[in-house]
Design a binder for these strands. Structure first.
Lengths: 226, 226
DNA sequence: TTGCATCTTGACCAGTTGGTCAAATCAATC
DNA sequence: GATTGATTTGACCAACTGGTCAAGATGCAA
């Protein structure tokens, strides 16, 4: 299992923690996510995180040894959720349905956890100082595995030839854009993914663009069987 | 003309500056771009910018009143370059050629000025504290104008119906992804846009995906005239 | 050369911030 | 309810950082 600065990447709750410890660590991680995603690592302050979590700075540092430890724990905390959708891509499923489902999940996460998206984006944009090893190991393994599935669909003539990596990058880029640049999206459209109507519209636009882009029908027409 | 914290958005060199002033302001802006894009506003330090520009911190503050003033000047300095490609989208051109050219320019900029891309991304992700007014005024005006062109192409039956805003967002997201997340791209592919081969491959992949996505032929086939 | 404005810098200051520590408080077990 | 370990906090410290200031260095025009 990959870890970040000693923080296990799994979202599993460490078992040896008391009731108070688990409650406080969760409060801290929740507050840290908000703070780090809003201000970045340097801009965040331990004092604000503590205040947001409802405790003193000293007490926060009783639970995490340093600011960097909090940051790593917050990163580890979101990483599983972040990578989960890609894992569900199934070689035996229908390509259109599989990719549509993947895009739907990514947009759902962008809508539900925009802070997680921004935290991750921030980390990677600064050169991924903490999670580069995970990108190079775990993520690369996962992406290589799923790229093979897409290549299989191409070989079977189910989708147009396309470099699977660029397809994956395109899906990541578009879906995360709506979370990371929500301020810009809101400035231009007046809405963002927190609006259910806009979320549905975005999902349809992105899905149909990408699926049509690789030669698939979307939304699926009953034409051939009518 | 829009401005940011008193800094004119135009890249025009102020005319009333001495030779020394112009040289030093440029050195500072260059250094500031590197520093702010790498560490974000909070993480950047005036001292490092000054060192990178080859002068003392005091001297830097002789040219710019504050850290925020440097930041705003750097932002203003890149904004024109950043928005230029969209301005070239021509209603009278061929949709496929026009959009392909736009994507090509965006990728070119991502490849040539990745730091500018990251600086802009950072600013927007933090809520666009400095340039929100520009997004809401200048950018919105430009995007509205170009959306009308795309809508015109749809009405003329030249491209499939698609919300122009989502199309534009998709182009922004994909092209900028390769600059902003270059570390992740490199971790997964071993290459980035600084590699001419990878840049060409990326341009082809993104262009064909998006153009096919809206019902255009790309790369253009001579099929109909053969 | 001289005089003046521009340019440059080191010393310094005040506010912020991550982190330490000893003491106080709380919770659970006997 | 006494004891012991876990939890919580305020006081405090050292490093860093943005910004000021007075003085010196430099460029330039007459």
């Amino acid at each position: 299992m990959a870890d970040i600065g000693g923080q296990t990447a799994a979202a599993s709750k460490p078992v040896g923690l008391s009731r108070i410890q688990e409650k406080n660590r969760n409060l801290i991680l929740e507050a840290a996510l908000g703070e780090f995603s809003r201000y970045g690592f340097s801009g965040a302050t331990v004092e604000r995180i503590a205040a947001e979590a409802g405790m003193s700075k000293s007490n926060l540092l009783y639970y995490f040894a340093s600011k960097e430890a909090i940051y790593n724990a917050a990163l580890a905390h979101i990483l599983d959720v972040w990578l989960a959708p890609l894992k569900t891509l199934d070689a035996n499923g229908d390509p259109a349905e599989e990719l549509a489902a993947y895009i739907r999940q990514k947009i759902e996460i962008s809508a539900s956890f925009p802070e997680a998206s921004r935290l991750f984006a921030n980390e990677v944009m600064q050169g991924a100082p903490q999670i580069l090893p995970i990108l190079e190991a775990d993520l690369k393994r996962l992406v290589t595995e799923k790229s093979a599935i897409i290549d299989g669909w191409i070989s079977a003539g189910k989708i147009k030839p396309v470099d699977p990596l660029h397809l994956i990058f395109t899906i990541w880029a578009t879906t995360q854009h709506y979370a990371d640049f929500s301020v810009q999206v809101r400035a231009l459209t007046g809405r963002d993914l927190s609006d259910p109507g806009f979320k549905a519209e975005t999902e349809m636009a992105v899905t149909s663009l990408i699926l049509n882009g690789i030669g698939l029908d979307w939304p699926k027409e009953a034409a051939s069987s009518a």
